[in-house]
Design a protein around this nucleic acid. Structure first.
Lengths: 359, 359
DNA sequence: ACTGAACGTGTAAACGTTTTCATATAAAGA
DNA sequence: TCTTTATATGAAAACGTTTACACGTTCAGT
């Protein structure tokens, strides 16, 4: 009976860890708190011997500054918010990679990462301020995914620097790091043309977002520049409700049916391209002997499929590295040379393209 | 010349937002800071009229408590760390979903999320304390991905409650939320047996992790329970270096070659199963008429592939909801009834299985 | 030897909260 | 009317930092 309360062990009992504060270090080192702080923050005017002694004791005691205290005093949080906005289904593959790289590079700069999702508001056009911003947990924000101009306008009042990934907004508070989709698309068309292809199809989906529009335009412009015909039948838009593997499958079927003499197809993402590979195989044509395929995204799936897919890289590490360094320079009030960087993608040539064969 | 410094606009200039503190609210409401704090934290013994007035002014001024101040005073951060440990390639598909759900449910409980990756230490067996723990930014931790017992032992000294996803460690500081992989595997074998299948193959990869071991054991045990033969040739382990689509492809080829009268195959993940679908198609057999296939994971890829894959769900939302609620109960020192929950997976019956046909 | 600068250190204030303590008023019980 | 209790509020301390200020000491330059 007496033990009943004592045993109540269906709850977690965490051993209380005694946290070592700066005053503990100061006391043990026989110095003042101020001196310890100076040493730890590498201020000038502190005796080398004292500094060494304090440093030794600090590591000995495993002292780590309490971030709340530090933030409260300094108004700086050494923390970056990562806001995930809306994105389309084909981008799901890509998100994990982006998170990974963003966290890596932000961490490397000595900052932490607070993850938050965009709250979908029912009220039209009203963007609520992210929790991490409202409660002052972050010094800057990275926004990944889609937000429209109106929403970005509102984000500009948050009072902290914001870095957009694959999006752009011209405003003093904003910077961005994006893939140069237009150049990527140009490279694809030029590559196919260099292999001798002239009748090149294009499979695309929603053009709602800047990146997809740029790829589309890159195809159109480059075809024109090279003097190649852009027959309206060459362009197929996938069904609104099948923005994935199956969308690519059916779009390709349509293309094969309507334009039988097509020798190459450029897909606006790998996802559609992989659907395309299956459709073409099912149709009885060979890749790349009969028809060449190029994707866009360099998702790892392109490596897994047979034949291995030639595609355009997303340059996730580069985009994220630039984003982190630019944003954090802004956060630290250092001048940023180019607030809006464009990363030139690379063509990953694998096995899904071949030179045009004479009939 | 004079303007040079003034214009230096190649850096972000953030409009300084004036932050409203509790004292501003107090002043405007003609009350003391203490009273305002009490109202905001819904303490008893505060006059209804005063409370209403303060509340009105607080929302009017858009007051949000400064989290650093609050943390510093209360030692509580309203923040959960999300530590991403090691995971295998096939799990990449799954990570995005888990992040999404964890953030959703943790946010719903009124907490923020700090994302961090496990630091891969070169020194053997030494696990470094995550930054968010060391600098006291979080009240609890969710760990997703693989960590071995030795590492978990060290994590137990962090002094905060930890919730493991799909892993278990018996210790007062730990709770966990996991898929019941064993039951899932049993359900698959029972389902196939109910369709009349007796010669059921099993394709698996690394058994390094608890979940994969449980699935493997579930297959073995259930076959035995049902009196079905577990011919050693029925089990194929994919190549160490091809833990993905291709691994499933080649493992299936081997299976078809060595055990031609197999009527069903159970794959330990969807990834292998999709490779299997391609291998079987290439081999000239029909799915499900000639052979039935079941995957495990219910990744969205199973929906995209032809035929649509019958598979076992990962129950990501349920696992994450349980994880969030259990962990946060622990954080708030509320009793937790069952620190280690097992979520029973569901079989998603689609088009890749059929009753055994008499020859 | 005296001034002024450079160096080194400690005291105390400030950041924005929450909460304990004290105090004042109102209501209730004798 | 006088205590006792419940209700309502404010003053002040505390959380752990960083930093402005003050006060020394040392040292080079006259």
């Amino acid at each position: 009976m007496k033990m009943a309360k004592e045993i109540e062990s269906n709850q977690l009992l965490l051993k209380n860890i005694e946290h070592v504060s700066i005053s503990a270090v100061a006391e043990k080192a026989g110095a003042s708190i101020a001196t310890v702080s100076r040493v730890l923050n590498k201020h000038p005017y502190v005796n080398k011997v004292t500094a060494d002694r304090i440093l030794k004791i600090a590591t000995e005691l495993k002292y780590r500054p309490n971030s709340s205290g530090r933030s409260l005093r300094g108004g700086k949080h050494f923390n970056i918010g990562l806001l995930r906005a809306r994105f389309a289904i084909p981008d799901q593959l890509y998100m994990e990679t982006m998170f990974t790289n963003l966290v890596r590079y932000i961490t490397l700069e000595g900052y932490g990462v607070s993850l938050e999702f965009l709250k979908e508001e029912t009220e039209k056009g009203y963007l609520s301020c992210p929790e991490v911003v409202a409660s002052r947990k972050v010094d800057g924000m990275v926004i990944i995914g889609h937000m429209d101009q109106k929403e970005l306008e509102q984000a500009s009042t948050w009072g902290i620097p914001i870095c957009l990934i694959n999006n752009k907004f011209v405003h003093p508070n904003f910077c961005s790091s994006s893939l140069d989709d237009y150049s990527g698309a140009r490279d694809v068309v030029q590559y196919l043309a260099a292999l001798g292809h002239e009748r090149i199809g294009f499979v695309y989906g929603s053009l709602e977002w800047p990146g997809t529009r740029a790829r589309h335009q890159g195809y159109i412009d480059t075809m024109a520049d090279l003097g190649l015909e852009v027959n309206p039948h060459y362009l197929v838009k996938v069904d609104e409700h099948q923005q994935n593997y199956q969308g690519g499958y059916f779009a390709t079927e349509k293309l094969l049916r309507e334009v039988p003499d097509l020798t190459a197809i450029f897909y606006i993402n790998d996802w559609y391209a992989i659907g395309g590979i299956c459709a073409i195989k099912a149709y009885g044509k060979r890749i790349p002997e009969d028809i060449s395929l190029v994707g866009f995204d360099n998702s790892w799936m392109g490596e897994e499929v047979l034949p291995r897919l030639t595609t355009v890289s997303m340059e996730a590490p580069e985009i994220c590295r630039e984003a982190a360094s630019t944003l954090i320079r802004a956060v630290e009030n250092k001048p940023v040379a180019r607030p809006h960087v464009n990363i030139r993608p690379k063509l990953f040539i694998r096995d899904s393209c071949a030179p045009l064969r004479e009939k």
